[in-house]
């Protein structure tokens, strides 16, 4: 444990890059790296799991929170609190915030790449690029989706009728395991562009990038609570979310088998909208499909409004 901590945030830097003093240090490095504590991102704040439990990353380098049912509950609460503010913003404003998120991600490219532990530098680069581009692409949807999903209804009578897309509310997302960052950004963006707020159970096998992404969120004008990130075992976190009566929809990526059945069954308790999809890792890199309007349309309600015409 102590051993791992010593490597700290320098974990991917080859020894050749280390300062001479570090190489030479007989009694350890001249300067001890300051390690980041991995936390949950709830309501715009970085918090430890209320349970006090933690998990260890696959490479054994880091601890991260083992979020509990209560953390899931807190996340929903934070999301609920953010809903009216987020949904009430103009599409233009939401678009600016998402674009700002892309800007911040671009600024943290290196860190994001480092956080992706698999596949080497070039794979990490292409995933980070794709993730940033996915955010940019969705930034542009915010003030356009309504024009495409809305309709003026040619009703047979002296009434004016129109239908508009509206957010559903709190959406619980099971982000895909891989690609970790792109899957996270690619599942969150279509949900939040229309004004929904999200509680995301992030990749179980590689949660580290979540924190860096959370820092991007935290510094990008994204209002607290719009995106809430939970690390921990999928089943343990998704079950209370599927049962939660304030969660209005489930977005399940690569959830199958018994877990899928039990989540969908629980979802019926408050008639949640459930979207369950399988996508292999490469599919996420399809920029066109990844930012398709149909992905956004899954998470809107259609509201129809009627009014008489005649003074």
């Amino acid at each position: 444990m102590t051993q791992r901590r010593q490597v700290g945030s320098d974990r991917r830097r080859p020894a050749a890059e280390l300062e001479p003093s570090e190489q030479l240090g007989v009694a350890g490095p001249a300067r001890l790296g300051v390690k980041k504590t991995w936390k949950l991102f709830l309501g715009g704040a970085f918090v430890r799991s209320e349970s006090g439990r933690y998990l260890v990353t696959a490479d054994g380098n880091d601890n991260y929170p083992h979020a509990s049912r209560k953390d899931a509950r807190d996340a929903v609460k934070a999301a609920q609190g953010a809903l009216s503010g987020w949904a009430g913003r103009s599409g233009y404003n939401r678009g600016q915030i998402l674009y700002r998120l892309a800007e911040v991600m671009e600024g943290r490219r290196e860190e994001l790449m480092e956080s992706l532990e698999r596949g080497g530098a070039s794979a990490a680069r292409s995933e980070v690029d794709a993730a940033i581009d996915r955010a940019v692409s969705h930034a542009g949807w915010c003030d356009k989706l309504q024009s495409l999903l809305a309709s003026s209804n040619p009703v047979a009578g002296p009434h004016f009728g129109f239908s508009i897309p509206e957010p559903i509310g709190v959406v619980a997302i099971a982000a895909p395991d891989r690609p970790t960052l792109l899957g996270l950004v690619g599942s969150i963006c279509p949900v939040i562009v229309s004004g929904n707020v999200a509680v995301v159970v992030v990749s179980e096998s590689d949660p580290r990038t979540t924190l860096v992404f959370a820092e991007c969120l935290a510094t990008s004008d994204m209002p607290g609570g719009v995106v809430n990130l939970l690390t921990g075992p999928r089943q343990e976190l998704l079950t209370p979310l599927a049962k939660h009566m304030a969660v209005r929809a489930l977005d399940l990526w690569n959830v199958a088998g018994e877990l899928a059945v039990s989540l969908e069954r629980d979802a019926a308790d408050n008639v949640k909208r459930v979207s369950r999809r399988e996508a292999d890792e490469s599919a996420w890199f399809d920029a066109e499909r990844g930012a398709a309007l149909t992905g956004i349309e899954r998470f809107v309600e259609t509201k129809t409004v009627w009014h008489p015409m005649g003074a």
């Binding site: 040619p154 009703v155 408050n270 129809t304 409004v305 009627w306 009014h307 008489p308």
Partner: peptide
């Protein structure tokens, strides 16, 4: 899912109908 302003119970095949929650 449907809000009727100064009218009520109006339906039309061209008009989407369905619920929230």
């Amino acid at each position: 899912g449907v809000v009727w302003g100064n009218t009520y119970n109006k339906f039309d095949p061209s008009s989407p109908f369905g619920g929230y929650k």
